[in-house]
């Protein structure tokens, strides 16, 4: 009886493990192939039969990208935009989250509903008036134009998440500051923000990722190569050099590193915050 149960469990375990490995290959092989291709010479990319590690294994493709000022500029631009978007989004969302979490005021539900519904508005609908607006305001092909428009994606999510986070903190915390003669402003910055750092990190990481990955606005609202961000840079590489696949893959990996590092560092917090947002938002 016990042995059959144990064998059955062993079979079940083997079955789950097989399933996990097959699914894992589906998820990981394309990524592995990207890595492998970035370490080949361009002549070997389509060799038959395909090989994971080839004779001319080298980091030349990475050196090409990192030694090229035009490519590095894409990275600089992406860092500037994503950092600015993250800082501004957090600042604005902390204030808004505080208002939603600690005050009741007329129009609260309406404003909240508007913020939630902003998330559903299609970027393709916005990009046309944004183009008109950004040109009219002289922000076409500038950092502020991109930073401002990226916030339409990052702000609603950040406000919802920060409000939810602040709601989990007891109100007695900020009341104690007010009893000591502090204002709601000091309660926010001295007490609530410092203890909300874990939640703010999760929101910040997600904000950074959204901005770093954004494609449509970066494509439409910038024009010159020195203002392009990494996703557009990857696309430009596709057109310019008639398919230097190894360089395109090296650029793709270099462009993915910031998000990968952030994710691995903050994985647990991040997944927790994300699912809370997706389920509750």
């Amino acid at each position: 009886m016990t042995t059959t149960l144990r064998t059955r469990q062993r079979f079940a375990k083997a079955g789950v493990l097989t399933g996990l490995v097959i699914g894992g290959l589906f998820a990981a092989l394309p990524v592995l192939w990207m890595l492998s291709t970035s370490l080949k010479s361009n002549g070997e990319v389509f060799q038959n039969p395909p090989q994971l590690i080839t004779e001319s294994f080298s980091f030349d493709a990475y050196a090409e990208i990192l030694g090229n000022g035009a490519q590095l500029r894409f990275f600089l631009n992406s860092y500037i935009v994503a950092f600015a978007v993250t800082v501004l989004t957090l600042l604005v969302a902390i204030l808004a989250g505080y208002a939603f979490s600690r005050f009741t005021f007329p129009g609260q539900k309406t404003i909240n509903a508007v913020i939630v519904s902003v998330q559903a508005v299609p970027p393709i609908t916005l990009v046309i008036p944004y183009f008109g607006l950004v040109v009219a305001l002289g922000l076409y092909n500038t950092y502020p134009g991109l930073i401002l428009t990226h916030m339409v994606f990052t702000l609603p999510y950040a406000i919802i998440m920060i409000t939810a986070y602040l709601n989990t903190l007891p109100k007695e915390l900020d009341e104690s500051v007010k009893v000591d003669g502090g204002t709601s402003w000091t309660a926010l910055w001295r007490i609530l923000v410092p203890i909300s750092v874990p939640g703010l990190i999760a929101v910040g990481v997600y904000t950074f990722m959204i901005s770093w990955n954004e494609y449509l606005f970066a494509l439409t609202l910038t024009r010159t190569d020195d203002m392009r961000t990494v996703p557009i840079g990857i696309q430009l590489l596709m057109g310019q050099h008639s398919y230097e696949w190894n360089q395109m893959m090296a650029m793709s990996i270099l462009g993915s590193i910031p998000v990968l590092v952030l994710f691995l560092l903050f994985q647990r917090r991040f997944i927790g915050g994300l699912t809370a947002g997706a389920v509750k938002a």
Binding site: A27, W33, M34, I234, M238, S252, G255, L260, Q267
Partner: peptide, 26 residues
Amino acid sequence: IVYILPWLFTIAVIAVIWRLLLDPSG
């Protein structure tokens, strides 16, 4: 972590990877 991998790459990267994989001689 392995299963989350596809989600960690930006769409531009995903497009480039699959253009390579789906190439006629890919």
